[in-house]
């Protein structure tokens, strides 16, 4: 735990990371600056007019529907984070503690699922969940009425798709932090008289917190950029932020507005990252480790 502290005052280290930092700064900050600049222009007949005014921002702040979509996006993202963590914890725990012999096989399967194109997976879900899909077919044959489940093309389906596609992130981050827990700590808890459940609650769960936080942040930030799931599984009728931005850039060809909305989403993401980072530092400082 003590090996993580790298000094900001280490000149050699700073110098060594300089090229990468410069590259990152250039390729991140410059486009960000351009995006910001773009948001102060206006558009006429599908062409950007360099007007340098705040019309776009006034538009953003006076139209409720942009914000209702943002709110919808944040709500979905939070729900997705919660579900991913709730599902990943037992999965990762089982991987580390109960499935030692098949652990690597399962990991490979998860990686395969992870690497499979999200478009394919998402369309697969449509085939599975549709009114005339595999699931309803099965439910009908075992005696449920036709179209027993109708969960496609609504926000619930979007959430299902998001959780499905983003789950590997939380599984792996939580898996890594669970795998790093010294087995002796668990034995020490048993030894002190704790049941398995109590040990999980008192030792395993608190120590997996770095993985939970990291996975949660990753999933949240990625959730902000989700468009495929809402479009394909959600039926497009409750668009999320990324879809709004895509529509604005591509369908409306309103680049200044798209840039402004992009900045709003980036701001939400940055605030979340900042909050999570602060929380993390706070938790760690209490332990006296960095």
């Amino acid at each position: 735990m003590a090996d993580q502290r790298k000094s900001w005052r280490d000149r050699g280290l700073m110098l060594a990371t300089l090229p990468v930092s410069a590259l990152m700064l250039f390729f991140f900050l410059v486009p960000l600056g351009l995006t910001a600049a773009l948001s102060f222009q206006s558009t006429k007949y599908y062409r950007v007019v360099w007007s340098w005014d705040t019309g776009t921002w006034i538009d953003v702040f006076t139209h409720g529907h942009y914000w209702s979509i943002m709110l919808q996006t944040i709500t979905m993202a939070l729900a997705c984070v919660a579900l991913c963590i709730i599902i990943s914890l037992p999965v990762a725990y089982a991987l580390v503690n109960r499935m030692r012999s098949v652990e690597n096989h399962v990991k490979v399967l998860i990686v395969f699922a992870f690497l499979t194109d999200a478009v394919l997976k998402t369309f697969g879900w449509v085939l599975f969940l549709d009114r005339t899909g595999v699931m309803n077919g099965m439910l009908e044959t075992i005696g449920f009425g036709p179209a027993a489940t109708d969960i496609l093309f609504n926000p619930g389906a979007t959430l299902l798709g998001m959780v499905y596609n983003l789950l590997p992130y939380t599984i792996f981050t939580i898996y890594l932090s669970l795998a790093r827990i010294d087995r002796d700590l668990v034995l020490a808890a048993y030894d002190a008289g704790a049941s398995r459940l109590r040990t999980f609650w008192e030792v395993t769960l608190p120590l997996s917190r770095p993985g939970v936080i990291a996975g949660g942040v990753l999933v949240f930030v990625l959730s902000l950029g989700v468009f495929l799931e809402s479009k394909v599984m959600g039926g497009g009728t409750s668009p999320m932020a990324a879809e709004l931005i895509r529509q604005t850039f591509e369908t409306r060809v309103n680049w200044p507005l798209g840039a402004a909305l992009t900045l709003v989403v980036i701001a939400i993401g940055v605030l979340t990252l900042g909050g999570a980072g602060a929380l993390f530092l706070h938790l760690n400082s209490r332990k006296g480790t960095a």
Partner: peptide, 15 residues
């Protein structure tokens, strides 16, 4: 553009 904006707005309000 107005029509597209209206479309976006009504879509956001629809659900």
């Amino acid at each position: 553009d107005e029509m597209l904006a209206i479309f976006q707005e009504e879509l956001a309000a629809a659900n």
